[in-house]
């Protein structure tokens, strides 16, 4: 295959969103839902999945229409497409569970302005074919969901002593109320960023050491 000559393969496009270019931990995009709705694991997961669905579908449609949309009106077109999918997803969530809809509140509508989605449309789907755009959308969406879940899980365990509504800590545990308040979102995100930066720094140092050894 000539894939190696053409650059990243479809699989690469999928994988990169999970870790190397994770929308939350590396690109630090889409902070509004990341901080606002991650007060429990289920909310975080639902928000992540809703965003992923919109991301995959908008990426697909924009990739298909990329030759048809004139450059001057591309942002307007992208917003139109994204907003339609978000509205559709909102109705579906309401049909699936009213409680979930209530918990996520206005943040479902705000997926429209989540910069992860517009960012992928502009930076990727408008320049790549359908299959790659689908892979990119799915990868980024999963990476976003994964990040939100990490935040939501930590906040729910510390803030309510439970995970997915099931108590995981002994009943005598004193919940840290601050973790389910907005400020807890900032603390948790900061701690995760610290952790991931530490990991990537250590990896870079090891890689540098390895090349130095090879060179010598």
């Amino acid at each position: 295959m000539s894939a190696t000559l053409e650059g990243p393969t479809t699989t690469d496009e999928f994988i990169k969103g999970l870790w190397k270019e994770n929308p939350v931990f590396v690109q630090v995009l889409g902070m509004c839902p990341t901080l606002a709705v991650t007060n429990s694991a289920i909310n975080a997961l639902a928000m992540g999945l809703a965003t992923m669905v919109v991301l995959v579908m908008s990426n697909a449609v924009i990739s298909l229409l990329r030759k048809f949309i004139p450059k001057q009106v591309r942002i307007a077109s992208y917003i139109l497409i994204i907003a339609s999918f978000v509205t559709a997803v909102e109705y579906v969530i309401q049909a699936v569970s009213l409680d979930l809809h209530k918990a996520l509140g206005a943040f479902i509508s705000l997926i429209v302005v989540n910069c992860v989605i517009l960012g992928r449309a502009e930076a990727f789907a408008s320049k790549n074919d359908l299959v790659k755009s689908l892979a990119d959308g799915a990868g980024m969406g999963l990476g976003f969901t994964f990040a939100l879940f990490l935040l939501g899980a930590v906040r729910e365990v510390l803030g309510s002593g439970s995970l997915f509504g099931v108590a995981v800590l002994p009943a005598s545990f004193q919940p840290w109320v601050i973790m389910i308040l907005p400020s807890g979102g900032f603390f948790t995100l900061g701690s995760w960023l610290l952790f991931f930066n530490y990991l990537s720094k250590r990896k870079a140092r090891k890689a540098a050491l390895a090349t130095a050894e090879v060179a010598s």
Partner: peptide, 18 residues
């Protein structure tokens, strides 16, 4: 795609169609 997008008709067509 850039060259084609210069015509206003195409812009309207794209936006209205979408």
């Amino acid at each position: 795609a850039v060259a084609k997008g210069d015509s206003p008709l195409e812009m309207y067509r794209a936006l209205v169609g979408i």
